[in-house]
Amino acid sequence: MMRSVFSLILICITFMYVSAYGAATATDKNLLLDKEIKNLQATYAAWQRNDAEFRSLREQNQSSETDIQEFAAFVAGLKRQVIEGCETVRQLGGDGNQHGVDCIKLSEESGDTQEEAPTIPTRQKTGEEKKNSLEEELETLIAEFDELMLEQQDTFKQQQAARQASGSGGDGQGASGGSEAAGTGESGEEAGTGEPGDGQMPPKAEPRSGPGVEKQGEMPEFEKGAIGDGSDDNVVARQLREAAEAETDPVLKAQLWEEYKKYKNSTR
């Protein structure tokens, strides 16, 4: 009997403790959400103000290049904070759109409708939203494909390394090297070797002009190597990337790429 009563008391205590903890956690979460929304609102307002000011300055074209660079870096940083803030609020169960922050517009600007976060579920999607959603789906599929190709390339690199380690990979000669060509006057067959390096990855499809050419999202040449192909982007990184790609002002565009790089480094 005593044992049963004791067990009952224990259960009650545990239940009360868990309820209190749950309530506290929920309260904490709400507090955190409120705080994040306030931060987001403030950042959003600052970004709107500064973005408009920046564009106005650019139109006037009176400021020094250094000032413009610094201002662009500031605006790009704010935009990154807004994108991150929208995502944080969403993760906490909130919706920036209901608090004066146009997270949808931001997503649209960057070609991302946040598929994972249906912001206004009851509203019918407009044609533009549908298009954006499909564009996002296409991007995801392309990213998946790129990932598959990257895996293959990694495998080739490993195979090449294994060959070199075993001492059999050193016979690679450039595909374009030393052709045994008419008029060259070379007599030995070896002079005509030009077999692509065995065990090496073939050159990737060379970028070409004319039909079939991808402009690589107008990404600056120097950035391509540094920031990768975006196949491992998360929601925020992808929005930043798209924002950078969509930006028409070259200075702000460069700064947005910079923000993208910083963000990617911070998530690694």
């Binding site: 790129d146 190709m149 080739f156 065995d198 990855m201």
Partner: peptide, 22 residues
């Protein structure tokens, strides 16, 4: 969009070719 996907086709072809090179 088609051109972007065609670039992927080039990548695929490069990869397949690498298998034959191996």
């Amino acid at each position: 969009r088609v051109r972007r996907i065609r670039e992927r086709d080039y990548m695929l072809v490069d990869t397949l070719d690498a298998h034959y090179e191996n």
